[in-house]
Design a protein around this nucleic acid. Structure first.
Lengths: 229, 229
DNA sequence: TAGATTGTTAATCGATTAACAATC
DNA sequence: TAGATTGTTAATCGATTAACAATC
């Protein structure tokens, strides 16, 4: 049997479908069609059906999908149907936002430990947890059994932290540090970069303006070393 | 002249190139080849050259790219070569992390105003800025002249906030609220969803396990209404 | 010059969209 | 049954990769 690799965009959309379905469930909607999903999610009906087709058949022709059952199925696909402990590294501003993030719980994601290397922070309470020493990550993870970790430290220490986490059994990393992590092939990394997102916006918003669209080609060396601005 | 639309993935990578180049510049490297860029960025040399080709010619065959000049070019392409004021909406945990985010400045991005609708927060200092009333966003933006805004409010109020921002002249939105924003076509939205990222990781880390890969098809109605777990 | 590396074209790959037979 | 909507296949679209002539 040839396993078809599920495209990453499909997985990303699955999370959106789940959110929309939870809202619909909340609103008392029991059945939903792919057409209605398109309206709520902004993702085309064809795309929705195609995405689900990677995992099985969940709808009934002429009727649609049971909201409740589809929620359960997507939760199972994404393994959000059981508690998922996570390790947070970095007890700074961003860490505080994450440890207090209210939406994790609905998806059974839970920050089970907070680590840092700052002795001023270690031992203190942080979002209801005692900050522990990153040097003891192995020991900590024997206790909490996390597979996923969140890196919310400066770029300069992100790689070191990643190495320690992987050694402690982490196989999925959500990386907020603006740096490329080098990890073994079995470890999955997802990067969140505010700067990248803002850079894309910055490009687009300016696009609407008069247009200094293309960058003046600037000869390397040879010339006077100044861009022809 | 047929304008070739620059692919979004290219724009995203541009931000990564810029970061790598700034690091290289910091390290005193003056010239860099696409091959070296591949090593530092994890993005293939061919991809790097292709990405740049949308904007012009920046290298010298046999030599490579001037780090300094390429930095200037990419900054210009992304319009990060001049100050960019931004409006932050939401003076909560996440807002605090954003307003204190140290990496914005290097890219000349600056949070110029913080808005909220909570009267307890309005008037208070928040990351060096006085929190202002979201209801006065138009007035505020006449002062700061932002084109980009960051939405860091609960999903329930995100759409209302977006509408107000757009009315106040915002054309680029970085949305942290887990909801699909409806905006006119000229407004660009980038969504950051921690939950989505974690959901993708959750899928992958479990993939390595024994394999409950595919979700048991669950008939809609008809049956006993229970998944065959 | 010879070696290195660019910018670009063509080939490949993968994801999205459209269409429709199957089915409730 | 007739109408609606699914799951899937084929067509389209777009992005990535590989290859190489041009050029420093």
């Amino acid at each position: 049997m040839v396993e078809v690799q599920v495209p990453t965009p499909t997985l990303e959309r699955l999370a959106t479908y789940l959110r929309v379905l939870l809202d619909a469930h909340e609103a008392g909607i029991e059945t939903i069609s792919s057409q209605e999903m398109e309206q709520y999610s902004g993702i085309s009906a064809a795309q929705f059906r195609k995405d689900l087709s990677y995992f099985g058949e969940f709808g009934k022709p002429g009727v649609g999908y049971s909201v409740e059952q589809l929620i359960r199925c997507i939760e199972r696909i994404l393994h959000l149907d059981h508690d998922q402990p996570m390790i947070l590294v970095g007890a700074g501003n961003l860490g505080a936002a994450l440890v207090g993030y209210p939406n994790f719980r609905a998806h059974r994601l839970r920050i089970a430990a907070v680590l840092d290397n700052d002795f001023v922070k270690i031992g203190r309470l942080f979002g209801g947890l005692v900050v522990e020493d990153i040097a003891r990550v192995h020991e900590v993870n024997e206790r909490v059994g996390a597979k996923i970790a969140i890196i919310a430290v400066p770029a300069s220490s992100a790689q070191t932290v990643a190495d320690l986490l992987i050694e402690a059994g982490i196989t999925g990393i959500l990386n907020f540090a603006p740096t490329v992590l080098r990890v073994p092939p079995y470890v999955h990394v997802r990067n969140v970069s505010f700067l990248q997102e803002l850079a894309v916006l910055s490009y687009h918003i300016a696009e609407a303006l008069p247009s200094v669209q293309s960058c003046e080609p600037q000869p390397v060396g040879g010339g006077n070393g100044r861009a022809a601005l």
